[in-house]
């Protein structure tokens, strides 16, 4: 199962982003996502998009590994934009205090440049963070991530639970597959030879053993952890804790710089919105 390459998880490597500390990456992800969510300065959002694509490329993530998910996210975003338009086609005009109609004259659903520009901003906001999340997931070792979370103040029991959940996802996938196979070998038809509905309802049979097995596993693992003294002290150290290097300070500098730039633009634009229609 470890052979499966289409897993959203840590892929060992030696790129710049692999070498960065987990703390740097989580701080970068959080700060940039926040400022990107708040800001409506189009140039700034474009800059973030370009930088995050650069990060994606330099982390050497294969497009194939994320293609399906990315396409799904883009489609979902587009659907979302259509809905935003459908529910408030005049929101852009209200926001930018002007109205330049492209098509539709005076009707309620008239498409304006202002609305289109607003939707374009939204589109950038939704998408700029996606490559960053990929970079984070693909280049950050879960254990190191747990260590990072712990370092920025999250209790170690919670940090470790997150890491261990990430670690067991492939195992549970494998187990599900095994149980499904053994149920088929008892006479449950789940192949293409059965009707879709039958296959769906039959699949529910797999869940019961899967849940029981997972519960058993949780029990055994937590026992194994306690036998090696997990959870008895207030603090814990981490084998995978990486000390910050110069690279991290550089990166943090860039991240903080970008964040400050975003904040400064609020003053320049006198508010969150860059308005080209003024």
């Amino acid at each position: 199962m470890s052979n499966d390459t289409n897993i959203l998880g840590y892929h060992p490597g030696s790129t710049f982003f692999h070498q960065l500390n987990g703390t740097t990456k989580i701080l970068g992800l959080v700060l940039l996502t926040l400022i990107g969510m708040i800001s409506f300065n189009t140039w700034y959002l474009i800059l973030l998009c370009v930088l995050s694509v650069v990060a994606f490329i330099s982390a050497k993530i294969k497009w194939q590994e994320v293609r399906t998910l990315t396409i799904a996210i883009i489609l979902f975003t587009l659907l979302n934009l259509v809905l935003i338009y459908a529910f408030g086609p005049n929101y852009g005009s209200a926001l930018y205090h002007s109205r330049h109609v492209i098509i539709g004259g005076n009707s309620f659903f008239a498409l304006t440049w202002e609305e289109l520009f607003y939707l374009f901003n939204m589109f950038l906001k939704y998408l700029f963070a996606v490559p960053l999340v990929y970079v984070f997931l693909f280049t950050t070792n879960p254990s190191e991530f747990a260590a990072s979370l712990n370092r920025i103040g999250i209790p170690y029991k919670i940090s470790y639970s997150i890491a261990i959940a990430l670690r067991y996802i492939p195992d549970v996938q494998y187990e599900f597959h095994q149980i499904s196979l053994s149920q088929q070998a008892r006479g449950l038809e789940l192949s293409k030879k059965a009707h879709l509905w039958r296959r769906l309802t039959s699949s529910s049979r797999i869940l019961i053993p899967l849940i029981f097995n997972s519960l058993d596993r949780i029990e055994t693992v937590s026992r194994a952890m306690r036998l090696r003294r997990f959870g008895t002290r207030k603090t814990r150290t981490w084998y995978m804790n990486k000390p910050g290097s110069k690279k991290d300070w550089w990166m943090l500098g860039i991240i903080v710089g970008l964040t400050i730039l975003g904040l400064l633009l609020f003053i320049v634009d006198s508010g969150r919105y860059f308005n080209p229609f003024k």
Binding site: S143, I164, A224, R228, F230, G231, R233, Y239
Partner: peptide, 17 residues
């Protein structure tokens, strides 16, 4: 429990801080 062999060996010592 560990994600790698090294971390698994280290587990008890990590917990001892």
């Amino acid at each position: 429990v560990g994600l790698t062999v090294a971390e698994d060996i280290a587990f008890a010592l990590e917990n001892d801080a």
